[in-house]
Design a binder for these strands. Sequence first.
DNA 1: TATTGTTATACTCTATAACTATA
DNA 2: TATAGTTATAGAGTATAACAATA
Lengths: 161, 161
Amino acid sequence: MARARKTSAPPAPTNAEPLDTSVLEGLIGYNARRAAIAIGGVFFERMAPYGLTQADFSVLALLAHNPGATSRQLCATLDILPPNFVNLIAALDRRGLIERRPHPRDGRAVGLHLTEAGHALAQETEKVVVELENELAGRLTERERTTVQRLLQKFYLRAER
Amino acid sequence: MARARKTSAPPAPTNAEPLDTSVLEGLIGYNARRAAIAIGGVFFERMAPYGLTQADFSVLALLAHNPGATSRQLCATLDILPPNFVNLIAALDRRGLIERRPHPRDGRAVGLHLTEAGHALAQETEKVVVELENELAGRLTERERTTVQRLLQKFYLRAER
DNA sequence: TATTGTTATACTCTATAACTATA
DNA sequence: TATAGTTATAGAGTATAACAATA
């Protein structure tokens, strides 16, 4: 761990000199945020050809495995506020990637389904993302990879706590 | 790991039913993002009495250990664009937490320093954040805690790769 | 010519209040 | 009365272009 000089005061950094970041790098919140932003940047680049944000991709991926899910379910799962979900869904609909069908047991709700094109895009982008993840995780052993996933989930999955 | 039903198709979820999130939870990017958001929410609550965002806190913490650092250095370290840094610094200045002094060796630059009040606030909020981190990390062993930090840093620290 | 700090500005993301139609 | 979906809107965060002062 030992994150460099924290004992002997650094000699007043000049403009291009790096700063002592040992305090921040000891914080899980800081590390998670920086990692998420960095990974998000790569995600954005790779998804540019498909025009999908992280949220878009998450919705398609969820619908691929949860056909007929409602906006309410997707919002709850992804922690998105319903008003902010409307445009996202509308855009996917306009692109012909999803279809809204009346919910079989609730007249208020709308069941969301992937179209043929939506299925194809979900499948292709999922492959791209998995490949991206494999590259990113290249610096980690298989064991480290599953470990970091499990540990991160403890912070946002309410589970049985 | 095994993240529940992925084989047998779920029976068309009803409105309150949880969705199958196994695909997303296998992605480090997704997990890092969700964890960062969750931790950020708790951070926001605890820092509300001090009126500090994560960025504000990061700047104060860095200045506490890097007196005289310039905006350019802080921007590079925290990955903030200079135009977005101006208001942040100006607000800290208005609150009397930092001081801008002419840079000893570069007339273009400004050396940033914590004031007495800034030092006090940095010290107090650092204690609060460390306590918060200890609570969050309570579900992790000490070894897991250092592991997750080290692994996350691999994604955003360019290091020797 | 390049860099530091800055202004102006636009675009995205996120958050709240309030409405409608169904339950 | 409560919930699903929606509208309008405000605020925060993030992005680019362009400028003055200094290197």
